[in-house]
Design a protein around this nucleic acid. Structure first.
Lengths: 249, 249
DNA sequence: ACATGTTTTGCAGTTTTATGCAATATTATT
DNA sequence: AATAATATTGCATAAAACTGCAAAACATGT
């Protein structure tokens, strides 16, 4: 049996069962345990699986554990969040919006950084509150069942009384002509308040949402100071945004 | 079974039930208690959960009282919460405090019940927001790192503008003579506001806290309409509360 | 076909890791 | 204070991982 076949077989087994024992593989492939060990080591080095004591497990087996939902385009969102993170200086006062991309940003903030973070998002607040040096202020309100954020008049009123250095927000839809739009009227009111409460607004937006629009308008593009999206976003999509300050990965 | 699988199983159990007993895990996984202990220790070191005497609790499942990291008391807390649940009628407007006992109450509320719930506790809000028919209103404020509740002047101000049917609260210490007391002055101010915001206040309190007191006073016992504690609480402890309206299990 | 160098494989000895057990210490509970 | 439950520690054993080495398999150039 060729080595390549063995590697393929091992990987298949791991992906099928999420885990394998080296002894089992050695037996079924009729090679020595040392050979299997070397193979698995190689696969591990190539990030195909994770080698553990006594066997190997599929990559997704270890990670993703604390994440309860499967997030669409997670990799892209993490990259965007990483870029956004570079804007945050120690000691800053920021606002972090709801949505999965913003949640990734909250996740990425290091334990050591000292920040004051306002948020309306329950998951973001939970994530941040475990970081000892982050002062977390939750803007209260009724919690929406779908987005898990505080909404309503009281939330908007509270937002009107603060001014943060940076506001990191998401949007439902964004288009060079129509600006930022949403499906939900209440969300629009909220986002308007968020933008008003910020010296600078940073839009975190996967390319999927570029050049799409909906019924209710949050703001024009010119009110957004920085937009972060993927580099691989279709150039034709991006050129219409070029007149504005767009950071790409 | 691979060690990796065990770690994952333990983590899953913790996240599912918020708490586990080492003895239970050892039995289900068919390994020695020492092994489980080592595993949990490792998970704790990796910040995946928090190890406590006799077991482990999920992160985010935080007590507001360091004295009380004992997971055995949880059974009692659940019983107390179950009793408290009987007071909640459909359509009611209630407030639920922070702390593990109140969190248990939030967990027990059924998916079908229609309620309006105010809270200052992040874990309670997270728990309730998954229930479709509960209107959850989070009273905003700065999130305290230890208790994971909103505190501060804004929180207290917001509380001053609401009136709920029932307020379910916990306390650090309770004594027939000194009433409800706390270790923390800010918490006292908050609890005063909570009591003021309620038509009726229900104290959820494990017997461990009976006849203990601390520096700062929240209120007299007579301001509490109902106190719920365990039946097995020492009778001598309870008789001094008899002049008040005390519900026992 | 042959020699040479490289890669792969299995083996033996050694080191590391995982696990359970027992003795002791610490922590809850009464 | 006494008792029970849980933690910690050191140790023994077994399994697994690592290391160096030599034989086998393979590739390559002549």
């Amino acid at each position: 049996m060729l080595k390549e076949e063995r590697l393929r077989t091992i990987l298949n087994e791991v992906e099928l069962h999420n885990r394998i024992l080296l002894t089992d593989i050695a037996e079924t492939l009729e090679v020595s345990i040392d050979t299997v060990r070397r193979d698995v080591k190689e696969l591990d080095a190539n990030k195909k699986l994770k080698k553990v004591h006594g066997g190997a497990v599929a990559l997704g087996f270890i990670t993703n554990n604390t994440r309860n939902t499967n997030i669409y385009a997670l990799d892209e969102k993490i990259k965007i969040a990483e870029k956004a993170l570079t804007l945050i200086k120690n000691g800053a006062v920021i606002f972090i919006d709801g949505g999965t991309t913003c949640l990734e940003l909250a996740r990425l903030i290091s334990m050591d950084s000292e920040l004051t973070c306002f948020t309306i998002s329950l998951p973001v607040a939970v994530e941040l509150s475990s970081k000892p040096n982050i002062k977390v202020i939750f803007i209260g309100g009724q919690i929406s069942k779908d987005a898990h954020i505080a909404i309503g008049a009281n939330t908007i009123h509270n937002l009107s009384e603060i001014k943060v250095d940076y506001s990191f927000i998401g949007t439902g839809y964004v288009d060079s002509q129509y600006g930022l739009t949403e499906f939900d009227w209440d969300i629009v009111q909220l986002k308007k308040a968020v933008i008003k409460a910020a010296k600078k607004t940073v839009l975190l937006c996967i390319s999927e949402k570029l050049n799409s629009q909906h019924r209710y308008k949050t703001c024009d593009l010119k009110e957004i100071n920085t937009m972060i999206t993927e580099l691989n976003a279709d150039n034709s999509l991006l050129k219409s945004f070029k007149s504005h300050d767009v950071i790409l990965l």
